[in-house]
């Protein structure tokens, strides 16, 4: 689980072009949207694509994203339970 969280942080920084951030700057329970990362709606769509591409998870209802993308903890838990790759 810890390795997955680390991987998620690295991918988020790279995929969302968070140039001035490092893995250490994102805590496991930090609110991803509406918090210090300043993520927007396009970032949310990028995360949906990332779930599909990296973990084979297709979100059919974008509203699901709200709870899944709450923090690194919630993302990692959801991925572990639903991943197909």
């Amino acid at each position: 689980m810890e390795a997955l969280k680390q991987e998620l942080k690295e991918n988020i920084i790279e995929q969302l072009n968070l140039e001035d951030m490092s893995v250490e700057d994102i805590s496991d329970d930090e609110i991803l949207f509406g918090g210090g990362l300043a993520l927007d709606s396009i970032d949310a769509l990028e995360l949906i694509v990332m779930l599909d591409k990296n973990y084979g998870i297709k979100l059919t209802d974008p509203k699901e994203g709200r709870s899944i993308f709450e923090s690194i903890n919630t993302m990692a838990t959801y991925i572990q339970e639903h991943r197909s790759k």
């Binding site: 969302l16 072009n17 396009i42 970032d43 769509l45 990028e46 694509v49 599909d52 591409k53």
Partner: peptide, 9 residues
Amino acid sequence: YFPSPAVFV
């Protein structure tokens, strides 16, 4: 087939 929303915009 993984179009990036951040590129598409």
